[in-house]
Design a protein around this nucleic acid. Structure first.
Lengths: 198, 198
DNA sequence: CAGAGTGTTGCACTGAGTGCAAGCATTAGC
DNA sequence: GCTAATGCTTGCACTCAGTGCAACACTCTG
């Protein structure tokens, strides 16, 4: 529990500041013009950096929107491992995925981002790609909960459960977006899961 | 039921021939050098056409590998609608998806293609994208089988069931590839589904 | 044989993404 | 406090995918 009174060095601070500046600028432009219609050059210019530097901060245009799904995945995995051993795979997944809905997430921004997914195929594609990596990330823990010997790489069961859960998540978010943000994402998720497992 | 003894016009025949030629050439190059390392220029040159013409036949490099997933989706949907009304959504989906494993599919080629997916993110991405469109395609029929009033766009249930089934399919194919083509895809699919619904 | 329709191609362009090397600021070592 | 290593920014040049356009060639029909 470090409350970090340590100043993280000028370099680190400016780096974070620039990162945030790019993100804000880009999301604004995306909201105004749409994701595809906005070029990296525009973002760089509006953020006051060079095009080359943009690609120093983000590997791709999509990454600005996706955020650090890598780190998020690790957090979910940790939450997953922290669940009581008595919980089933589905129960643990449900609880772990709920941590994604932290208090730090701003509903309006989230709704905007969800809207971008709807008309930017490349964005959806990269998002799904990341979920594939989550599959590998969560697999060991789910295998444990399913009582599968670890290392049975050809066993599809753990991956299937994870993939199904993530699919339900995506669909719940999409339905939430369609409802204009009024429906409860957790209820939608539970409804999706119930339909799958009925 | 037209068994088309009608010669489909020279134009159509050459078009098909060129299409096939490009596909064969491209798959050979992909197998030799890998998908990403092969450029469209190389394919065009090897197939004896111009780069520009390549994009007349295929919308993207990925499309050569993916084939016509659009048409395939329609076929699966038709198979889905043809299933007895008494079948549950899952039963109907299982049967409809089995039609994908026709006698026309060559195991060696399939194995090669499955291998390409493994190390070409853009390929996986486009594949997943197509499955999203299948979701919309199958949704009406699945809604019917789930007893959901059609047009309830915000209802996540039908989409969830379809997404889960397609996820199980992809995972079964992937596990089949990992087994070197020895395992039975249908068994793997059933195992995946059973794990999800247990 | 003339003209409509369709296919092929070259050309020029946009836009994403990368490797490299030079210049500048920060940081750390003495 | 000076110096040297480190790292950030930037411009430049490049590759590759994909698209719009216009010229040309081929085939089919009247």
């Amino acid at each position: 529990m470090d409350s970090t009174p340590v100043t993280p060095s000028l370099r680190e601070r400016t780096r974070r500041a620039v990162h945030a500046e790019i993100t804000d600028t880009a999301l604004r432009l995306f909201a105004e013009q749409g994701f595809e219609a906005t070029t990296v050059d525009q973002i760089a210019a509006a953020a006051g950096i060079s095009r080359r530097s943009f690609f120093h901060y983000f590997g791709s245009k999509e990454d600005v929107v996706l955020g650090d799904l890598e780190a998020l995945g690790l957090r979910v995995r940790d939450a997953l491992e922290a669940r009581p051993a008595a919980e089933t795979a589905w129960e643990a997944l449900r609880a772990a995925l709920k941590t994604l809905q932290g208090p730090d997430t701003d509903a309006v921004t989230e709704l905007q981002i969800a809207g971008m997914y709807a008309d930017a195929p490349s964005l959806r594609a990269k998002h799904l790609e990341k979920h594939l990596r989550w599959q590998e990330l969560f697999a060991p823990e789910i295998e444990r909960r399913l009582g599968i010997a670890p290392g049975a790489t050809a066993d599809p069961r753990a991956r299937a459960v994870i993939a199904a859960a993530l699919a339900c998540l995506d669909i719940a978010v999409e339905a939430w977006r369609e409802s204009g943000g009024t429906a409860d994402p957790v209820d939608l998720f539970d409804a999706a899961v119930a339909a799958v497992r009925a």
